[in-house]
Simulated assay, not measured.
Amino acid sequence: MSPAQGARNGPSVTGRVLGILSAFGPGAEALTLSGIARAAGLPLSTAHRLVGELASWGALERGEDGRYRIGLRLWEVGALAPRSLGLRERAMPYLEDLYEATRQNVQLGVRDGHEVVYVERLAHPEAVRVFSRVGGRMPLHATGVGQVLLAYAPAAVQEEVLAAPMTALTPRTITDPYELRRTLAAVRREGVAVCDGMVDLLSLSVAAPVRGEDERVVASLSVVVPSAGAEPRAIVPAVRAAARGISRALGAPSARRRPAGVVSPLPAGASPTGG
């Protein structure tokens, strides 16, 4: 088939299936068949056939209300992604230690293009709200985890982000390329990122890099605490210790040269929120 014929015939079957799956997301966790067809740009009859096949395989599930949701089969396949599977297994003991040490929200993310994808999150019921979710994405420039990943990303990726328009999630979000460049240099120099009110004016995050066996930064973890009264210096040692522990579990030589152990408790008398 010639390119002209392909253009006339529209997206391939694979493209149509991916369009259906892409219709789901935050705020669109449950969709009617007509809603799926509309979001995917497909005729209702085509959507009906493809959605039926996806539901039969388990990629979608149809609830009693007639709406479709992402199925467990798709989650099972996604959980096998190599960057998530081994990382999450090795990271979990340190994430749990960090969670117990701070009693705050703990997150682990990896870079995908110009976004951070969260692969794990431990949320304390009384902690400040967070907008991340497992499998969710955020722009690199706006989050602590993202700034760490961007700071250690290839130079070409950094320049692409710096040259592109940057969304302001709050009035404090860094959107100026010169300011972001300085911030990334500080992250590399200090080995930690502190983002105050960049995603939510009520929250502050402290993030540190996680390295793999070749010393490249493969992930980043963070703790999110209330911005009011927060003292980042009280949180940094625990975050760094957790990041080193995960790096050591992943085989990073630099982490093996330094004591990483389990996460140490916060300094005596220190509170994760400075209160």
Rank of each mutant, 00 (worst) to 15 (best):
S222K: 01
A39D: 01
S132E: 11
T170P: 07
E53C: 01
L85Q: 12
L202W: 05
A241M: 08
A7M: 07
S264N: 07
A39K: 13
Y68I: 07
V117K: 03
G52Q: 09
S2L: 11
M1S: 12
G136Y: 04
L162G: 06
A153F: 04
G212N: 07
Q5S: 06
P232W: 10
A37Y: 01
T273D: 09
R73E: 15
L54P: 02
V77Y: 11
V17P: 00
V206L: 12
R233Y: 09
P43H: 10
L201F: 01
G71A: 08
G10N: 08
T173K: 04
A101T: 10
V224N: 05
G144V: 05
P232K: 07
R133I: 05
L108Y: 06
G6P: 01
R216V: 04
L74E: 03
P253S: 08
T143P: 04
A186S: 14
G146E: 05
P177A: 11
R258L: 15
L150D: 08
G146N: 10
A23I: 06
E213T: 09
L54S: 09
S205N: 03
Y94C: 03
V224H: 00
L221S: 03
S227P: 00
H141R: 09
V218S: 05
L202R: 15
W57K: 11
L204V: 12
S271P: 00
P226C: 04
L202T: 14
R62W: 01
P154M: 06
P11L: 14
D112Y: 01
R257D: 14
L31E: 10
A123L: 08
P272N: 05
G27P: 08
L169G: 05
N105L: 13
